[in-house]
Design a protein around this nucleic acid. Structure first.
Length: 451
RNA sequence: GUGGGUGUAGCUCAGCUGGUUAGAGCACUGGAUUGUGAUUCCAGGGGUCGCGGGUUCAAGUCCCGUUAUCCACCCCA
């Protein structure tokens, strides 16, 4: 019990893993800003009433704050850690409405907390990277497409396996189910959403338990099987079901627009996707890593008509957004050793230290390189050059710098190539392909990321 | 919260039906290599066997409890 060990569900990475995560975060921030999204950070806690306010379900596992010295009469503080970034964002918007310009595009990269039992890919503390667009009164459907397209493009630039995005529309599903005379839409959605995991054979009995007739069950399953990136194919398949309802037409039209804007093979309509089950009202999207579907979705999002507005009255504030589950992605890839960062140190150059008397000269070399943006450190003590280079090599630092002086020129050794050459301190630059040396799925990869 | 599996070195694990001083590989430190890394060879350090109780002449090994962790359900990034 006195043993120090990791806390389940609260991941902490090794330095090389953290280094890569930081680069990914920086990359995504730059990417989002390049598309006009503005950064937002919200506090870690929200009043419980805010977290519980959206929709009816309060079965989310929420961590509540309580002072150590609180008495039983005091109870808890009424504050809790946020379990996603969308709800705090909506609260922020309804609070600062007057100071913001709409439509507002914001991104937010922060930790969130959920009290669920940890499992593979399921954490209690994890990072989400969100982008959302929120409008006043109305928000063009165009943003649904833009957000989905950005999600696809952002994921494609990360050093992770290829991702496929599955898109659906809640109006379409609701129309189908209402057209079949079903009242309990949520329960049907919940059952259908499990299709990927338990298959049609697993879903069918769940639907029958809800009291649905066999032909309704079979129509629902037929609809859930529809999956294609071509909107015409999807529409034809839906029409062939022979169900009619105004929401079906509306949903199909919206789905078509999203597909046409973000259209690509790796973005597909998939009618079994339900997502969230709480605040989404139209477009829903879910991303999976191809070949690694068993870990579940690594990104998801959708359209919500009035999340913020419901918090403070006033006009409607419809939004659409997506979230990338960075911890789930990296935790899985690191754990399975599918992604390895071979550099532990952020440094590119290690200046070797010939003797204590040379320390000042070595620091000067380092400062010169740093002033040109080259991350550099000086070896910490006098030691044999073999030992110094071994240390550099183990940290993944590519270049070892042999300090020169008036008689002797500086030399640099490329520890990957094994080559050593005279260099000029005033002009030397590292190779442009000296990026993060990664191994992804057994393949060597040099990933730069945006700056 | 419910059900099942597992806790031995920093990591991955071995340890037969209880029996001397608990082992291996990797990693780490030093040396061969007196100022040129990764290979090789040699040597070395490191363990309350998760914790508590019980059975026994004797417990890492058997029993009970507890705790942590993993998996499934639930739910989701």
């Amino acid at each position: 019990m006195a043993r120090i060990q990791p806390l389940s569900g609260f991941p902490e990475w090794l330095p090389e893993q953290e280094l890569l995560q930081q680069r990914v975060i920086r990359h995504l921030s730059t990417w989002f800003e390049r598309h006009g999204f503005q950064a937002l950070t919200t506090r870690a806690v929200e009043p419980l009433s805010v977290l519980a306010s959206k929709g009816a379900d309060t079965d989310k596992e929420i961590y509540v704050l309580r002072r150590l010295h609180a008495t039983d009469e005091d109870g808890d503080s009424g504050l809790a850690l946020h379990f996603d970034l969308t709800v705090p964002f909506a609260r922020y918007v309804s609070e600062r409405r007057g100071d913001l310009f709409f439509p507002w595009k914001r991104y937010q990269i922060q930790k969130v907390w959920r009290g669920e039992r940890p499992q593979q890919g399921r954490y209690r503390e994890f990072l989400q990277c969100d982008i959302d667009v929120i409008g006043e009164q109305t928000l063009s459907l165009r943003y649904d497409g833009e957000v989905v397209r950005m999600l696809r493009d952002a994921l494609a630039t990360l050093p992770i396996p290829p991702v496929v995005l599955l898109v659906n529309n809640r109006k379409l599903l609701e129309g189908l189910y209402r057209g079949l005379g079903i009242e309990d839409i949520i329960s049907v959605l919940r059952a259908v959403d499990k299709r990927n995991k338990i298959g049609d054979k697993g879903v069918a009995p769940l639907l029958s338990e809800l009291g649905l007739a066999d032909d309704a069950v079979s129509t629902i399953l037929k609809a859930a099987a529809i999956e294609d990136s071509d909107p015409d194919v999807v529409e034809a398949a839906v029409r062939a079901l022979g169900v009619s309802h105004p929401l079906i037409d509306e949903g199909l039209a919206e789905l078509r627009e999203v597909l046409e804007m973000s259209g690509a093979d790796n973005v597909r309509a998939a009618l079994h996707i339900a997502r969230g089950l709480d605040y989404y009202t139209g477009t829903v999207v879910e991303g999976m890593m191809v070949g690694h579907e068993h870990i579940g979705s690594i990104a998801s999002g959708g359209r919500y008509e009035n999340l913020a507005g419901s918090m403070g009255g006033g006009p409607q504030l419809p939004g659409v957004g997506v979230s990338i589950g960075l911890t789930r992605i990296l935790g899985y890839l690191y754990g399975a050793k599918l992604l390895i960062n071979q550099r532990r140190s952020p440094c590119q150059v290690m200046v070797l230290l010939p003797s204590e008397d040379d320390r000042a000269a070595c620091e000067n070399i380092a400062q010169t390189l740093r002033s040109r943006g080259i991350a550099t450190e000086v070896y910490h003590r006098k030691a044999g050059w073999g030992k110094q280079m071994k240390h550099a090599s183990r940290l993944g630092i590519r270049y070892a710098w042999f300090p020169g002086n008036d008689e002797k020129s500086h030399e640099i050794k490329d520890l990957i190539a094994g080559e050593q050459a005279d260099v000029d301190l005033a002009t030397w630059m590292p190779s442009s392909d000296d990026t993060l040396p990664l191994i992804l799925d057994g393949e060597e990869l040099s990933w730069q990321g945006l700056r």
